[in-house]
Every structure is written in structure tokens, then in C-alpha cells.
Nucleic acid binder design. Sequence first.
DNA 1: ACCTTACAGTGAACACCGTTCACGGTCAAT
DNA 2: ATTGACCGTGAACGGTGTTCACTGTAAGGT
Lengths: 244, 244
Amino acid sequence: MTRPRQSVTGQADESGPWFVPPAGQERRRRVLTRDRLVTEALAILGQDGVNALSMRALATRLEVVPGALYRHVRNKEQLHDLVLDSVLAELDLRVEDQAAWTGRIALLARRLRTVLEKHPGTAGLLKIRDPLGPHSLALAEAFLASLCAAGLSPRQAGLAYSLVYGYTLGFALDGPACANEQRVRDSATRGELHAFLRSLPQDRFPTVAALGEHVWIDNREERFTAGLATILAGLTVDMLSPED
Amino acid sequence: MTRPRQSVTGQADESGPWFVPPAGQERRRRVLTRDRLVTEALAILGQDGVNALSMRALATRLEVVPGALYRHVRNKEQLHDLVLDSVLAELDLRVEDQAAWTGRIALLARRLRTVLEKHPGTAGLLKIRDPLGPHSLALAEAFLASLCAAGLSPRQAGLAYSLVYGYTLGFALDGPACANEQRVRDSATRGELHAFLRSLPQDRFPTVAALGEHVWIDNREERFTAGLATILAGLTVDMLSPED
DNA sequence: ACCTTACAGTGAACACCGTTCACGGTCAAT
DNA sequence: ATTGACCGTGAACGGTGTTCACTGTAAGGT
């Protein structure tokens, strides 16, 4: 599959004139960079999912031995951090054109979800890392600034931020690539699932049996939008009532 | 460390009279059970976290060879499912005494969080599995029944259920054992973190620098309660407005 | 132009992981 | 007593993250 590099050492005792790459021994100094690591890691992530992102796979893709990666990255965790910050860098945080503060928050949340789902698996990393890298902080800044400008107290703003941020992260976490979501996306599997729900004993699960087909459906988009709207409505209520 | 079992085959050629356990070769039939697997898996999970739950660790704990587990469990994924359902079985779903429907929902969410955080790591499994086991379904039944009784349409009920359920799961996911939370729990580390936040460039992160210490604090309990209240307030608003 | 030095990638190893399978001992039913 | 089903054993396979002595290259100083 991959071109054997040993055979190049001999002088064309192979059959075809393989046009020996550039130099006799193919200089190997300075082939790796942190940026190359992160870029290719993102490629693997977006192509084969988070489970496919192994040090060995990354090394293979970079045509390098696994241990070589550790010259540029302390361990896999740091690689994750770098990947995360690189992903968050894609976020456009400019929301000044939105009149209502709820519009600004919603726009940020929507963009966050888009970026996270564009690189499947990254949300899973974020949930348990909170990198505190520059772009992660910039995102927090954008959220908090909008919330403060809306008149929320520092405490309210902090609570609101972690609510919206956590909601979006949690939503992107079981992304479209998740087994749970796949089950409901494919119409055949969904049919089985609905049949299963309908067949449940009516005495123990009456409500699930009755409206299971309205719950386990392929409505990711509606679910995200509606959930976000509900949260923002709740925040508006909180802001009006003197709870602080 | 562990008692070597090979030496028992010979007839006490070892030094001490080890009082050969029960029988000459220590009958090994019927040592394992699904229940024992699940119980010990929960023990490992609650003791050393989700990363420590490996087939080999479980086998060692059960004083058995790794492959033996596969007589009782198809693979690790099924073990996860069994563990999850066993955890959800601890949930008390009786909420009839609560007058307001919001009280019922809040009570269920609170109990769910308690149970999930009692067994660290289980939330992480739930997020990506949705086992559809009996106890998982019973939980959905309890939520949906309360929401329907409150007068929500099937669609609204479904959306509300996944919002509250997802919120609670996501919250329990980065539980107290998470590195992110630990950082803010320990007062020394929190001091460093606050100093770091204060030291941020005022021109790029003014809001974070100003109220970072009100955001990254040890207020899990308040965060959960406030977030839940906000969501319920939002749901109440949704219910009053004719959005369906 | 030479020598020295720092470093990046190599190759091999270590210690784990999940999973499979032929084997053989034990028990229950015949 | 014989049979047969079952269950744990031991060993292996292929995968993972990580470490480390080694070595050739490239750059800097003289």
C-alpha cells in the first residue's frame, strides 16, 4: 500500500525507475511543525472521527515514526488543547450589528455549534478540558460582554454564560455522528425504534408509548433553536425579576 | 502482591501451611455473574473514575482472567449499558406530591443529577449511548408524563424533555471529579486562576478580566439550581405563548 | 574550511488496552 | 456412568500512548 522506503537504499535494483524522490536519502530534518500536527489532526478528526485520532495514525499521515511527534507536543492531551484552540479560532465573534442582546447571544451560540459540529469530536474534548487558550477566552469575552451590556449583574452574567455555553457544548457533543443520533436519522432504524416504543407495555410506559414518536425524531435543528429560545426567554424573565 | 495460585498445585512444597483454600484446586465454576460484573464495575467507576474501568482491571478485581468476562458480556459497550441501567435503577421517580409541574420536573432533574454524580463517569457514558433500557425509559416516562399533565403539546413536551434531560446530563458530565472543576474547587489553584484572569490584557479581554472571578468560582450547586430555574421559567413562558 | 554542537526523526521497546479462541476441568442431566 | 453443556484458563493478536538511546543533518563559531 505505502511505498516501501527500504528499497530505495539499493541503487535501482528494483524493476521500475521510481524516480528516486529528491535526494538519495530524503533529508528528514524539519519536516514536522506544530502547525502541521494540528492541521493533520483536524483532518483526521473531520474525516474519520475522534476515535481515529491516534498518535500512530497522525504519525503515519505525516510519514513519520510515532515517537517523532513528541518532539513537538508533550502528550496527546496537549495535542487536544492545540486542536481545540485552533478550532475556536474559526469563530467569528463580531455581533455588534445585532440590536437585541438575546440576538447577540443566540448568534454566538449558533456559530459555536456550527464550528464544533464542523469538526466532529472536538466538543467532546472541550467538555472536559476548558483549555483557557486565547480563543477560548475571546469567546468567553464576547459572551460576557454582551450579557453585561444587557444589564445583568456579574453573578447573573456568569451564570447565564455557563448556562448558554454548557447548553451549546452539550448539544454539539452528541453530534450528528453520534450513534444515538444516527439511530433516529436513518428512517429504517427510526421505524424500528418507533415500533419498539409503540410496543411498550401501556400500563408502565403510557406516555412514552403515546408520544415517543414525537420525541425520538430527527429534529436536531428545531431542538437546538427551541432550547436556545427557551433559555433566552428564561434569562429575560430572570433579568426582570429582582432575584439578585 | 496477589497470592500466586500456581504454587498451590504442588503439595505444600512451599514453606508456610497456607491452609489450601477450600478444595485442592479451588473450584472455579460459577464465580462470575452479570450482577457481579456490574457491581464491581460500578465500584471501579466510583473509586478511580471512568478511565480506570478497563476489562483487565475488572477481571483482576474479580480474580479472573480478562477473557472470562466475555462469557457474560458481549463487549465493553454492553457492560456500559448494563452499568448505566443499574445506575438509573436507583432513581426514585415518584413525584406525585409536588403541586406545581415545575416542581416535579425540578425534582426529577435534581435526583437524576444526584444519582449520576454519585457514580462518576456514568454521565459520560449516557451522553453517547441512550441505552433505552427499562429504567432509562421509566425516567423518560416520568418526565413526559409530568410535562403532558402540565398541558404541553406532544411536540413541546418532547422538546422540553430533551432540554431538561440534556441539561442535567451535560451538567453532571463535568462532575466534581473533572479536572476543570477541580481547578476551581481547590482554593490555591483558584487563586492562580484568578490572578491569571486579572493579568489578562485589558484591551482584549476587559470583561473577562473584570468579572472572571465571578464566573470561574466553585458554585456548582448554585449554577445547577439557577440554570434549572431559568430553563423552567423559559418553559413556562413558552407554554403561555401560542407557539405551536 | 573545519570543527563542534544542538536537535529532529529513527527504531525498538514497554506497558497497557479490547477481543478471540482452543483447551480442559467441572457440574448437571441422562 | 456417561454424556454434554458450560465456564474459566492461558495465550495470543492487533491496537494504543509513551520513552529513550542513537544517529545523521544542519547551523554556528572559529
